[in-house]
């Protein structure tokens, strides 16, 4: 079953592994190598023209709505909007007021804490993916559907459901805790617990997604490795640590990078699960929430742009560090 079902994926994996769009001679789309034509032949020019024509619609849109805005944001971060719409160059003033914002330390800590909780969920999804890999096809697809439901559900709706589950007085979670004698806290209106509460929902809603990626990675590990190590007398736990984990490390790396990037940008749960009138909001803001407030609530666009630039630099730096560190622990087969 798995052989036919995963064909397109497996095929994608085979070529996807080659870095960059460079291709060797005689590769797809080009004319046979033997008959190389002069550099500016008519056929070449025609291929160029088609190349540009086919990327043009996308690039017009990317330029207008993504690339130019990135440049604009960088510029905005050094300006201040006057009351009548005029812009003034203010140097690093936005950056210094962001860095001296009394809300910043708490928001930065909340953001980091949330991202760390999300990262702590990765081992859970590895274990579940490994367990799912052990059961037969029809059970595996049933589990896959169930674990994936949170991933496809609307985050705004999911946040509302969890706000209700977490309700301090009438929520289901505190009721279940009371059955075992625990008096549960006000999860979403006490800022000592809000980040944990949101982190748990973050893990819950990404578990299925991560499992799919790990399951694809697990399918790639040749069965012979396990057979050979069984002959050598290795048990299942030993095999998990000496075969599964090392060979799964590229997937673990990919998921960690995505989790850090996503975790540090968390915003929607603060808005939807806590809400603007929540007493715990002040102590539960994240960096991305500060950006949202400055950009669209208080109208402090210059400051918002500075936050966006700082966030980008931090994300790029963290990703670069992760790529550097990967050499120490990621094994590419």
């Amino acid at each position: 079953m798995s052989a036919t079902e995963s064909t397109p994926v497996a095929a994608g994996r085979a070529t996807g592994a080659r870095p960059g769009p460079e291709r060797g001679p005689g590769s797809p789309g080009t004319r046979p190598v033997a008959g190389r034509r002069p550099r500016f032949s008519k056929a070449h020019m025609k291929e160029w023209a088609w190349g540009y024509a086919m990327i043009a619609p996308l690039f017009v849109g990317l330029f207008l709505f993504y690339l130019w805005p990135i440049v604009q944001s960088a510029y905005f971060s050094f300006t201040s909007w006057g009351a009548f719409g005029g812009q003034q160059w203010v140097g690093f003033q936005n950056y210094s007021s962001f860095l001296s914002d009394p809300q910043l330390p708490r928001a930065a800590w909340n953001t980091v804490k949330y991202a760390l909780i999300i990262l702590a969920g990765i081992p859970v999804s590895i274990v579940f993916a490994a367990l799912m890999n052990q059961v037969s096809g029809k059970y595996a697809s049933l589990y896959r559907v169930l674990y994936f439901l949170p991933v496809v559900s609307m985050p705004a709706a999911v946040a509302m459901v969890w706000r209700w589950l977490y309700n301090g007085d009438y929520g289901l979670i505190n009721y279940l805790l009371s059955l075992i004698g625990i008096h549960g806290p006000h999860w979403v209106s006490d800022d000592r617990y809000t980040i944990w509460a949101m982190g748990l929902v973050g893990i819950w809603s990404s578990l299925g997604y991560n499992m799919i990626i790990f399951a694809a990675g697990l399918k790639n590990i040749p069965r012979q490795y396990y057979e050979a190590s069984s002959l050598d007398g290795a048990g299942r736990v030993r095999q998990f640590f000496s075969i599964t984990l090392p060979l799964l490390s590229p997937s673990i790396f990919f998921v960690s990078v995505l989790s850090v990037i996503g975790g540090l940008q968390m915003f929607d749960m603060v808005l939807m699960m806590l809400g603007k009138t929540n007493p715990a909001l002040a102590g539960s803001k994240t960096i991305a929430y500060l950006f949202y407030e400055d950009a669209f609530v208080t109208g402090n666009q210059g400051l918002a742009a500075a936050i966006a630039v700082v966030l980008t630099l931090v994300l790029l730096a963290l990703t670069a560090i992760q790529f550097r560190l990967q050499k120490r622990w990621v094994h590419y087969a």
Binding site: E47, Q265, F291, A304, A305, L311, L315
Partner: peptide, 26 residues
């Protein structure tokens, strides 16, 4: 297809994937 600047344009597109949405939102 092959055309001059293809790799550079491809990299430019990947840059969009690498920045957080807050940067282009405003």
């Amino acid at each position: 297809l092959r055309f001059p600047g293809r790799n550079a344009l491809f990299m430019l597109m990947l840059a969009v994937l690498m920045v957080p949405s807050q940067v282009y939102l405003l």
